[in-house]
Design a protein around this nucleic acid. Structure first.
Length: 252
DNA sequence: AGCGTTACGCCCCGAATTCG
DNA sequence: CGAATTCGGGGCGTAACGCT
């Protein structure tokens, strides 16, 4: 089903909106979204912001605690950083990476909405396809009303000023890939720290990769790294290097 | 209390697509 | 073309929660 309004698509969008890479709203999985949609409470993700506890508790499998948690999660999502919101919105070709770039470049949803293709094309890593995808989303009827609804609900985040990445040190200009499970750091944290240290984290191993950081239960990326003769780091080596670079990984 | 559902927090993979 | 990403699919163990 391609129609953006068919039930399956609506639910997909909502689940995506709330999913982990996006706004990370607790309590919104497929099943819950099914109930919400069946009950006619939501027609697009922005409707989440109008849900009320009274309505929620009536749903099967949803008690006071779940309702409260869900509402708290939705409330919290209003203050999510811009890049997360962009991922949540679900514009074609805009995932974590591009969202981050767009957020840093434009700083606010308003600014991005007004951007034309030319402005987008000027940005590194943005080509015609992504540019037109972004522009056509914000000029489409669906996109406009959606953004409008979000704004009404009080969602219009600005991106935090990007932390100035280190300009010297062992990470600068190097590309890292993470694989396996790290112990003390989450992948997200590890990636952030590496970036702050001036390094880059990508998602696939190639000859351009400088080092692969392998945790336990590593996947095929480690094999590829070995095959290509790329340095393999363990978590300790990463932490030591981060410390040396002046980025102290706080224990969580 | 026990059961079923869901979420969470990690993760992997492949196909398709895009950028340069 | 090579490198990198998105996207959508899946997995697994643990924990929280609502219901009966």
């Amino acid at each position: 089903c391609e129609n953006l309004f068919c039930p399956a698509q609506v639910r997909r969008r909502i689940v995506h909106f709330a999913s982990r890479g996006a706004l990370d709203i607790e309590g919104l999985g497929w099943k819950t979204v099914d109930w919400l949609a069946d009950a006619g409470l939501v027609e697009d993700p922005a409707d989440l912001y109008h849900l009320r506890a009274e309505d929620l508790v009536k749903l099967p499998g949803m008690g006071e605690k779940s309702a409260a948690n869900l509402l708290a999660g939705i409330e919290r999502s209003k203050s999510a950083p811009l890049d997360r919101l962009l991922v949540a919105i679900g514009i074609r070709h805009v995932g974590a990476r591009i969202a981050q770039i767009l957020a840093e470049h434009f700083g606010s949803l308003d600014a991005l909405e007004k951007a034309d293709e030319e402005a987008l094309l000027g940005i590194d890593a943005i080509g015609p396809e992504i540019a037109s995808s972004v522009v056509s989303f914000f000029s489409s009827k669906v996109g406009k009303t959606f953004v409008q609804k979000l704004r009404h609900a009080g969602v219009n985040p600005e991106s935090k000023a990007p932390r100035r990445a280190a300009s010297t040190g062992p990470f600068v200009g190097k590309t890292f890939v993470l694989t396996g499970t790290l112990e003390e750091l989450t992948r997200e944290d590890a990636a952030r720290f590496i970036q702050e240290a001036g390094g880059k984290v990508t998602s696939s191993v190639s000859s351009k990769t400088d080092a692969v950081v392998a945790g336990s239960d590593p996947g095929s990326k480690l094999d590829k790294a070995r095959a290509l003769g790329i340095e393999v780091w363990d978590e300790n080596r990463l932490k030591t290097a981060l410390k040396k670079a002046g980025v102290v990984p706080a224990a969580r």
